[in-house]
């Protein structure tokens, strides 16, 4: 059952990737010829000509795509024009930083959001619920660059508690550089992670509150109350379990979105993440990096969706991991 499901999902992923790669390739092609970003426009014509030929830009687009696919299948997504490094390796090295940041902010969002949402939704239209609900609207609408700058002013410049930006000291763990294991690294992580967590935190509070309120009206809760189930047990074993399903789905979506769009936070806090790499690459039309990045994001979403489906199937026995439908 699980095996069939995974196989089907993998095949599906390859089809998706193939389609997306064509779209991306055409899209990036439409950005224009990158050669004038790489070569001084006043350079002699034969230098320009030579560069074009070296990069394979003189061939028709389908040939370029063919070469790209052949190389991609052997794990080579091209070499960055500007960094002179394999684009995939470049992305992988920057991805760790972003992943760390997003993970930290989601942990904050879930750890605070679930309990607050439960408190807000439980009980009979209490003032805590109404207050949290209004405050969470703020969390959704406050622009993150403004909040980030405000936090830097208050916590870094005025109170001098935390550094203003950068990633801090990292240590290698299984060959990956992480800042989660050093005090300096963590102190650098706190502010950007908090800034980035505000939006998912607000969403989780609202979704949990709505779910708890909806489920409190349901027959199974009334029956469990009529059976004398204790209120705490009712909330955690009965209501929360059923409320979690849409929340897990949303966390999965947000996870991908945060990684793909962490660029604002990364810029404000000078966090050397993947978003900053993308912006720089777009500026100089560094095609291999842009393409590799976009494909990377697609794969990431596919993996996240898979994980969400597996978790939801574990939470809800009515969901079956079937290959079809």
């Amino acid at each position: 059952m699980m095996g069939t499901f995974l196989l089907y999902r993998t095949l599906q992923a390859f089809v998706t990737l193939a389609v997306v790669s064509i779209i991306i390739f055409l899209g990036v092609f439409a950005l224009g010829n990158p050669v004038y970003v790489l070569v001084d426009p006043s350079a002699p014509a034969d230098v320009v000509e030579q560069t074009i030929r070296r990069l394979g830009l003189d061939r028709p687009i389908y040939e370029q795509y063919g070469i790209f696919v052949t190389n991609a299948l052997s794990g080579d997504l091209g070499t960055s024009y500007t960094h002179a490094q394999p684009s995939l390796a470049l992305i992988a090295s920057r991805f760790t930083a972003t992943f760390e940041l997003v993970l930290a902010s989601l942990v904050i969002a879930v750890a605070l959001g679930l309990p607050l949402g439960l408190i807000a939704g439980y009980g009979k239209n209490n003032w805590v619920g109404r207050t949290l609900s209004s405050v969470s609207i703020l969390g959704i609408s406050v622009p993150i660059f403004w909040l980030g700058l405000l936090m830097i002013i208050v916590f870094s410049l005025e109170l001098k508690w935390l550094p203003t930006g950068g990633r801090g000291e990292t240590v290698a763990l299984f060959g990956v550089e992480t800042s989660l294991l050093t005090l300096d690294g963590l102190s650098h992580l706190v502010l950007p992670a908090m800034a980035l967590s505000l939006f998912p935190l607000a969403l989780i509070i609202r979704l949990t509150r709505a779910g708890v309120r909806e489920h409190s009206q349901m027959d199974y809760v009334r029956f469990a109350r009529a059976m004398g189930i204790r209120p705490a047990k009712l909330l955690f074993a009965y209501v929360l379990r059923n409320v979690l399903i849409p929340i897990v789905t949303m966390i999965g979506l947000i996870f991908g979105t945060l990684i793909a769009f962490a660029v604002v936070t990364e810029t404000v806090f000078a966090w050397p993440g993947i978003g900053k790499l993308l912006i720089d690459s777009i500026k100089v039309s560094d095609r291999p990096v842009i393409i590799a990045y976009l494909l990377f994001v697609v794969v990431m979403f596919l993996v996240i969706n898979l994980i969400v489906d597996v978790i939801n199937a574990a939470l809800d026995p009515r969901i079956r991991l079937s290959g079809t439908s």
Partner: peptide, 16 residues
Amino acid sequence: ISMIFQDPLTTLSPTM
């Protein structure tokens, strides 16, 4: 004192 309800399809928690 116990109570049972009308719709057995919604009276039990679906995930337990």
